[in-house]
Amino acid sequence: MNGIIGKKVGMTSIFDEAGRNLACTVIEAGPCVVTQVKTEDTDTYNSVQLAFGERRAKTSSKQMVGHFKAAGTTPKHEVVEFRDMDIAKSLGDTVTIEDVFAEGDTVVAVGTSKGKGFQGVVKRHNFKGVNDATHGQHNRQRAPGSIGAASYPAKVFKGMRMGGRDGGVRVSIPGLKVLKMFPERNLIIVKGAVPGPKGGTVILHK
């Protein structure tokens, strides 16, 4: 699984050859440093660990500072492991978007969605609510309605769609097409939306 770590810059739109306006996301991907190489002989499987984003040594643990020092680099903010990468890289090497992707590739974007806090059933589960405000429906427009019987089962079943914390979860968006790449600026433009806020960490892989 070839991949790279980056951060979301924001959304924009570009025109394709047919003149259609396409919504797309700009991602600053890499350069990433190889901080560990695992093989079947040492770890029973093959993988490459990449690190991205500068971080002060003051805010890093001594173990991680030593881990990055062994790779000949400064402390990083994000560390992600990619299994079975077919890119020949050694400890301390740099991985750029040109090493992993090309224009026209289809990629998967993984990120953490925006946290919405505690939300009701209308926003969290797309409930319709009671649209008719007449006939005694006072303050019931966004209510969940009945959630179960009384004497039996005398409880609320697990998994009942109710209000609660919304967002702030790991989300994968497959099938995003790479529209343009700017290797000199480490920028990659993919078609469609990518989870997370501006500046949020995004993992791109094939």
Rank of each mutant, 00 (worst) to 15 (best):
N2G: 04
G3S: 03
I5S: 03
A18R: 07
N21H: 02
C24M: 06
V26C: 05
I27Q: 07
G30R: 03
P31E: 15
T35K: 06
E40A: 10
D41N: 11
S47E: 09
V48E: 04
V48F: 05
Q49F: 12
Q49T: 15
L50Q: 12
F52R: 04
A57C: 05
K58G: 13
Q63M: 13
M64E: 14
G66D: 13
G66P: 14
H67A: 15
K69A: 15
A70H: 15
A71I: 14
P75H: 14
E78W: 10
E81M: 03
F82E: 09
F82G: 12
F82T: 08
L91G: 11
F101Y: 13
V107F: 03
V107C: 03
G115L: 01
G115R: 02
G120I: 03
V121C: 00
H125Y: 07
N126P: 00
G136W: 05
Q137T: 10
N139C: 02
Q141V: 04
R142G: 00
G145H: 07
I147Q: 10
S151R: 14
V156G: 05
K158G: 12
R161G: 01
G164P: 00
G164R: 00
G164W: 01
R165L: 04
S172P: 05
L176M: 11
M181Y: 11
P183D: 11
E184N: 05
V190S: 05
P195G: 04
P197W: 01
K198Y: 02
G199E: 01
G200Y: 07
V202G: 06
V202F: 03
L204V: 12
